[in-house]
Amino acid sequence: MDEKYINENMLVERYLKGKLTAEQAAAFEEQFLSSDELLNELEAAERLGQGLHDMSALENAHVTKKPTSNVVSLFQSPRYAMAASFMLLVSLGVSSVLLQKNAHLSEFDSNQAIPTEIIPLVSVRGAAGSELNTLPLGDTPKQFVLMLDPGFETYSHYRATVYQLDSAKEPAMLWQVNEMLPGYEDMLALSVPSSVLNPGDYEIQLEGWQDEWPANHGFEQLDTKTFKIKK
């Protein structure tokens, strides 16, 4: 039961809510008994819950919430958001087609729309890695946008470096993007043009940087992901 396992399985929160099985709870208790670090996490989560409860109670005591009208509810609903997103995508698609059809009317006619593939990269181990994270190169140039999970810790910004792997040689650095910030779903989007990639194995090293660190402090290594390019 290491730190990663504890965070990924939300053992701290589940213990506090009494949602672990008797065996899980006993093993967890045995572990936190001798771990100040884990006890700090437990106490912080406990205080967070208490603080949120107190805040909510205070707000409810002082604020009488205006009843929400049906129209406002509609605009706030996830269904409306989904419908709006869908309409936006459709309109973007139509605009894109119109732009390409009328390219001769535009002063940007030298710009070609490049197909883009958005791929969430997953952590893989062993043989499974050969199946997952495999990207087809195709015949036409395109842009790969690789979605990376920055992990639990928050950093001021992130740096991703792509290395080409070759068992006969040292990994060769191929592409690097610095100053990355999390966007959609708190993921990092690493854009790599297909023109720099050839069929083979690749590795992405993800690093984090905190603004308060001194200049001579190095980036902190966060995660390594592998992917494969096939024809």
Partner: peptide, 21 residues
């Protein structure tokens, strides 16, 4: 309900805890 994935959910809880800590 909020249409979020489990990883994002865990991260929100973890970060809030870390900040308070």
């Amino acid at each position: 309900r909020l249409d979020v994935d489990g990883i994002h959910f865990n991260r929100v809880l973890y970060r809030a805890r870390q900040r308070l800590k």
